[in-house]
Design a protein around this nucleic acid. Structure first.
Length: 490
RNA sequence: CGGGGUAUAGCGUAGUCCGGUUAGCGCGCCUGCUUUGGGAGCAGGAGGUCGCAGGUUCAAAUCCUGCUACCCCGACCA
């Protein structure tokens, strides 16, 4: 399986594409730009979902579901919004097929043309705000804190598994608030949740910040994001949280009576993360031996491989290991005891290694004799023989260590690939090599555009945590009040 | 959506330029025996509308036209 597997340094995008396919995460479908998420890949998404869903619910959000189809007229209500999405919408125009009157097959029935075309949602702000209008009359109806897990469609020109597909799965939160401050607080709260999730669960360090106007979500007042650095030196936007101001409230006439008995427009936020996170996860940790998964999101955390010659030997091993498997499961660890006799141990080793299972235990006749077990960790590819008696605690400790190790490795990588740059020549040279560039920017869209044209690099984010330090724009030399993060991006 | 490339068994490929036996090979798959601590060995076997649709020809994987999908590079984007 890992035979003929490309190395990252030779061809990074080939490496990624092959990894997704060979690790059995997803494949291309019969429909252009759409993917089939296979069980192993979907299991990662399910883990992500369950963690995020709990985080949302713990902060007072509830789930609901809004329709896949959006009437075309809804879209034109918010001018920036429609402009941002119009070019990539799939449109339903008919509701019936019929047998081809002049031959084989089946054709669209022209008599079944829809009065008004339906857009397949690229995002749900419009249909949701059209609904919220009916739900909100008074400040007592606020805040409204709703999330939905859904699929959306954006007709992308160029697609890549997980990173950009025409259809993808995500969650989209849509909240309504009585005051501006409350809506901004919500936007920030979610950004913190996303950053927490990325760092604590995905073991992937991120920079929190705000997008420049050019990169802002269509219809938002401000777009906040978490931005991660991939191993090839390109940036990946991993999540976004938008402060929508009163833009959608005004577009959809969502007003409420405040405590002073005055009509006001509702303040809003929206936020989302998608199956793109799986792409981020893959690129953050995996190596030339295949996928590497952080224990907290790995569908299988521990694989156990018995080594035996005859059936009665397997029985002896199973008798020895089953209590261990059970004890691990009782600690909440997902263990796969792989006693299939259709594959050999060496084959299984390679399989679990390539699929990124964090820990592998192997037990054979020698171990039975010595009361030991072999432990192999995926992150370092190290193996050790340990006594079987303390194995449960050892495994728990190791999983924790692997989780932390992956995070600190990613963090060191980011530090080594983040550069302060103060002149234009250095900027151009460094962008070619990749990484995050911290440079001064004069704050204008023109400069941002010029830099993009000359180097392909964009402002990934204007960091929130940094200390401000004045300087001169790396491109124009005009005054700048802070450094921003430049990079080439996915 | 523009430029370039590719499409032959589940996967990877030879053959295509220059049309002509039964489309060849490796991996995988099936059966049997021997194996099993890093992707086993030997023997036998199954598996092909040559991406799809037309056309040229006595004859098409091979030549021509159209279409589709994927990959790379651009523009667009989570």
């Amino acid at each position: 399986m890992a035979k003929d597997f490309p190395k990252r340094k030779d061809n990074y995008s080939q490496w990624y594409n092959d990894l997704v396919i060979k690790a059995d995460l997803a494949e291309n479908s019969a429909v252009r730009g759409c993917m089939v998420i296979k069980p192993y890949g979907f299991a990662i998404w399910e883990k992500m979902q369950s963690v995020l869903d709990k985080m949302f619910k713990d902060t007072g959000h509830v789930n609901a579901y809004f329709p896949l189809f959006i009437p075309k007229s809804f879209f034109s209500r918010e001018a920036n919004h429609v402009e941002g999405f119009a070019k990539e919408c799939a449109v339903v125009t008919h509701y019936r097929l019929k047998n081809n009157p002049s031959g084989e097959g089946i054709v669209v029935d022209d008599d079944a043309k829809l009065e008004e075309e339906l857009i397949i949602r690229p995002t749900s702000e419009t249909v949701i705000w059209d609904t919220y209008k009916n739900w909100i009359q008074s400040y007592r109806d606020l805040p409204l804190l709703i999330n939905q897990w859904a699929n959306v469609v954006r007709w992308e020109m160029r697609t890549r598994l997980f990173l950009r597909t025409a259809e993808f799965l995500w969650q989209e939160g849509h909240t309504a608030h009585a005051t501006k401050d409350e809506a901004i607080d919500e936007t920030m709260k979610i950004l913190d949740i996303y950053a927490d999730f990325a760092e604590k669960w995905m073991a992937m360090p991120v920079i929190k910040g705000v997008k420049s106007p050019n990169e802002r979500f269509a219809g938002a007042v401000d777009t906040y994001c978490i931005e991660a650095l991939m191993q090839d030196g390109k940036a990946l936007q991993a999540g976004t949280s938008h402060f929508l101001g009163q833009n959608f409230a005004k577009a959809f006439e969502v007003k409420f009576l405040n405590k002073e008995n005055k009509q006001d427009y509702v303040w809003a936020s929206s936020w989302g993360v998608s199956t793109r996170l799986i792409g981020a996860l893959i690129m953050a940790h995996s190596d030339d031996s295949g996928l590497v998964l952080p224990p907290k999101l790995a569908p299988i955390q521990v694989a156990v491989v018995p080594i035996y010659k005859k059936a009665e030997q397997l029985q002896t091993i199973s008798d020895k290991i089953n209590p261990v498997v059970k004890a691990l499961q009782e600690k909440g660890i997902s263990v796969k005891y792989d006693d299939r006799d259709t594959h050999k141990p060496g084959w299984k080793f390679s399989e679990y290694e390539f699929k990124g299972v964090p820990l592998r235990l192997a037990i054979g006749p020698r171990d039975l004799e010595n009361n030991t077990i072999e432990v192999a960790r995926r992150d370092t590819l190290e193996k050790e023989i340990v006594g079987i008696d303390g194995i449960v605690d050892h495994v728990i400790r190791l999983l924790d260590e692997i989780q932390n190790n992956l995070y600190s490795k990613s963090l060191s990588f980011r530090k080594e690939n983040t550069f302060m740059v103060d002149n234009w020549e250095d900027f151009k040279a460094q962008i070619e090599k990749g990484g995050f560039i911290l440079a001064h920017w004069d704050g204008t869209g023109e400069t941002e555009q010029r830099i993009k044209e000359e180097t392909k690099a964009t402002i990934r984010t204007i960091p929130m945590d940094d200390d401000k330090a004045e300087g001169k724009c790396v491109f124009s030399g005009k005054p700048s009040e802070r450094r921003v993060v430049f990079a080439k991006a996915y």
